[in-house]
Amino acid sequence: MSKKTLVGIGVVVAALSFGIRIGSHAADNHRLKESTVAAGQAVQWSFDREKAGSVPAGARTLSGSWSVRAEKDAPTQPQALCQTASARFPAIILSDRIFADVTVSARFKAISGSEDRAAGIIFRIQDENNFYILRANALEDNVNIYGYVAGSRQAIKEGSAKVPAGQWQELRVEVTGNDIRGYLNGKLVVEAKDDTFQAGKIGLWTKADSVTCFDDVEAIAQ
């Protein structure tokens, strides 16, 4: 077996050990240095091989309290990634990989929260103060697109949709050029155009006292 083949096998083994599933076109290793993901590559997180009580390997918490824990009804057993603290805007970056045009989907369960009960995907992340948000809110029954610019959240477009609390649902964002489309359970809810950010990292987000769990996150570069 060649040295090149052995190196390739090593990358695959490392990816599996961190709970990252190999997509149809590529595998991602969270510890790879920051680089742009080529069109057709898929990166997936199920969180099931991660250590309970920790953040996923390669992830970086921006705010809030994020950890992997057992969830009996998780779409992919046995674990999910949950945010349980109260903060202004809890957020976590999942990887250092850079995506431009991308589809990001995540299963989520909005468990509790009296001030807010939200779940969000953040994308085209530049740093902790600059990114886009697609947010579903179970108290307000809406799915909205926001820009988070210089640490200030700015509404871009709002969409109305029933967001039941306490059950798993799918949130998905498709971004192509300046076109951003937000889906809840496969249905297009909100769409807008914005030119603020062209590429960046991806992650997850909640708001205020939301206790929210996420599972089966997937990013596919377009």
Score class of each variant (00 low, 15 high):
214 F>K: 00
117 R>T: 09
153 R>G: 13
203 G>N: 07
8 G>N: 12
137 N>I: 02
191 E>N: 13
171 L>A: 07
68 V>F: 00
84 T>W: 05
136 A>E: 02
153 R>Y: 10
46 S>D: 15
110 A>D: 03
126 Q>I: 10
215 D>A: 02
202 I>N: 00
190 V>G: 02
13 V>A: 14
106 A>F: 02
218 E>M: 12
81 L>S: 04
107 R>M: 09
22 I>L: 13
118 A>N: 11
124 R>T: 09
109 K>E: 04
113 G>Q: 02
120 G>H: 01
142 N>G: 10
78 P>H: 01
69 R>I: 07
168 W>Y: 09
9 I>K: 09
207 K>H: 11
199 A>E: 15
96 D>C: 04
220 I>V: 15
130 N>E: 07
159 G>W: 02
138 A>T: 05
69 R>V: 08
84 T>E: 13
172 R>S: 12
138 A>V: 05
75 P>C: 08
198 Q>I: 08
13 V>T: 11
63 S>Y: 06
67 S>D: 06
81 L>T: 10
40 G>V: 14
68 V>G: 01
82 C>I: 14
70 A>H: 10
110 A>H: 00
4 K>V: 14
25 H>I: 09
160 S>L: 10
152 S>C: 05
87 A>R: 01
152 S>R: 12
141 D>H: 03
211 V>I: 15
1 M>V: 12
182 G>F: 03
23 G>A: 06
21 R>Y: 06
177 G>V: 04
154 Q>I: 11
144 N>R: 03
4 K>C: 03
48 D>A: 10
124 R>L: 04
73 D>I: 07
103 T>Y: 00
150 A>S: 14
104 V>D: 03
69 R>T: 15
113 G>C: 05
103 T>C: 01
107 R>E: 06
58 G>R: 03
37 V>A: 11
166 G>I: 08
209 D>G: 01
133 I>C: 01
82 C>H: 04
161 A>F: 01
32 L>H: 11
56 P>Q: 00
128 E>N: 10
99 F>R: 01
44 Q>H: 09
11 V>Y: 13
13 V>Y: 07
181 R>S: 14
117 R>M: 13
169 Q>H: 14
61 T>S: 12
95 S>T: 15
193 K>R: 13
123 F>A: 07
202 I>R: 00
135 R>A: 14
35 S>Y: 10
36 T>Q: 12
214 F>Y: 14
87 A>L: 11
83 Q>V: 12
53 G>H: 05
69 R>A: 15
127 D>T: 06
220 I>F: 08
206 T>I: 07
54 S>F: 10
112 S>E: 15
222 Q>I: 11
119 A>F: 05
195 D>Q: 06
108 F>H: 02
161 A>M: 13
170 E>C: 06
211 V>E: 14
81 L>F: 15
110 A>S: 12
157 K>H: 04
85 A>L: 07
93 I>S: 08
